[in-house]
């Protein structure tokens, strides 16, 4: 099962994609993708219900968040109402270790994204702040990466023993399904996704730039 774990819709301040158009795009282009996860910036979208769209297009559509920490941006899968009370999702300087601990305490998974990116990626800060505790998974393929950003993420994942996911970080419709994550089991709900991430049985895939398997 192939899911794009990092997408943004018009719910994000810099997102320009409507969720229905993502679905239409995936189906019209016959893309090898079973679904996607909406990771809106600095918020969790409690209100939107995409179940009808998911059914209409036969896609899995899940909701998560992209929050911000002193180490850069972090995807959080499995956000609950209780987790939203633990820290301010809109705050831009949440401590990463707190985000990871709180996520785990509430059955969620926190994943630093585009970690090889200057300024907003985790490895831009590790020299100054040290290796943060608790990180188990990082995003090693990001559709918006430039230069060596993904390679920095891969090299550090190998060195530090992290698992790796892939996501497009799409902000417009046509940028979805550039990167994704392949799972061995079926995923229909956010709980399924969190469980799959916790088992570690997945593989990051760069769809638009084919590559040899990454052994993590």
């Amino acid at each position: 099962m192939l899911l794009d774990l990092h997408t943004h819709s018009i719910k994000s301040d810099d997102g320009r994609a409507k969720v229905e158009n993502y679905c239409q795009w995936i189906r019209t282009k016959n893309l090898e993708l079973d679904g996607f996860v909406l990771t809106e910036h600095r918020q969790f979208d409690n209100d939107s219900d995409y179940s009808a769209l998911a059914k209409k297009f036969g896609l899995v559509i899940l909701k998560a968040s992209e929050v911000e920490t002193e180490y850069g941006h972090v995807l959080v899968y499995g956000v609950t109402k209780a987790l939203q009370k633990e820290f301010d999702f809109a705050y831009t300087k949440n401590p990463l270790e707190m985000v990871i601990e709180a996520s785990e305490a509430h059955g969620a998974v926190a994943v630093p994204c585009h970690p090889g990116r200057p300024k907003v990626g985790m490895f831009a800060h590790t020299e100054e702040l040290g290796i943060p505790k608790g990180v188990k998974i990082i995003e090693i393929f990001n559709g918006g990466s430039r230069d060596q950003e993904d390679q920095i993420a891969i090299d550090n994942a190998i060195k530090l023993g992290y698992k790796g996911i892939g996501g497009s970080d799409s902000h417009i419709v046509s940028h979805v399904a550039h990167c994704a994550t392949r799972f061995t089991q079926d995923i229909a709900t956010i709980d399924d996704l969190v469980a799959a991430l916790q088992t570690g049985e997945f593989e990051a895939v760069h769809i638009t730039k084919p590559h040899a398997p990454i052994q993590l």
């Binding site: 301040d13 910036h41 911000e68 941006h73 831009t92």
Partner: peptide
């Protein structure tokens, strides 16, 4: 028309 923030390496960025 709008004011919001994002983080950057050297601190907060105000849009």
């Amino acid at each position: 028309h709008d004011i919001y923030t994002k983080t950057g390496r050297s601190g907060r960025m105000v849009f």
